[in-house]
């Protein structure tokens, strides 16, 4: 019963703050609402008994990536009055693409309704020891490949950030 209330609370919070990300005029407010969204999603992970995923979600998204977002936005000093007005063509294109995205989402959730609900094989799969065993035994290769991908992107970021000396 308590978990159900928590679920509703977190869901309403997540949807409200996600909407506020889009609707608030001030970019700093948007980022802060996005942080709230991430926290409520982490709360959902806790409800699903995957504490590791929840904590990593908070550390990586709320703690690192969003801080960098905030950092850049504060540096750029974007304000509502300096925000350039986009032309009507761009606005129309944005509406059409957004509508298409919405359409796909609605269709996919509609068909998902008919799928049988599969229970997780092990309810404790989200605990860190189980997750680590699965990750390092069954999915060793994809895990290592993704780490190489991260390394490549890191090297790329360093190269982009370097001063050109030649």
């Amino acid at each position: 019963m308590l978990t159900q209330y928590a679920f509703y609370f977190l869901s309403i919070l997540a949807i409200f703050s996600a909407l506020m990300v889009v609707f608030s005029r001030n970019p700093v407010h948007s980022v802060l609402y996005l942080v709230v969204t991430f926290f409520s999603i982490a709360g959902h992970y806790f409800l699903m008994n995957s504490q590791f995923l929840a904590m990593v979600h908070i550390i990586v998204y709320a703690g690192a990536i969003m801080v960098l977002f905030l950092y850049v936005i504060m540096m750029l000093n974007l304000n509502t009055d300096t925000e350039p007005n986009k032309s009507n063509w761009v606005k129309g294109a944005a509406v059409v693409t957004g509508g298409l995205m919405m359409l796909i989402l609605v269709v996919s959730t509609k068909s998902a309704d008919q799928l049988p609900i599969q229970k997780a094989l092990n309810p404790n799969i989200g605990l860190i020891s189980n997750l680590g065993k699965v990750l390092y035994n069954e999915y060793m290769l994809p895990f290592e490949v993704s780490s190489i991908l991260f390394l490549v992107s890191m090297v790329g970021a360093v190269m982009l950030g370097k001063k050109e000396t030649y």
């Binding site: 990593v56 550390i59 860190i128």
Partner: peptide, 8 residues
């Protein structure tokens, strides 16, 4: 990890 998350 909790400590680390709160610190972050």
């Amino acid at each position: 990890l909790y400590v680390f998350g709160v610190v972050s």
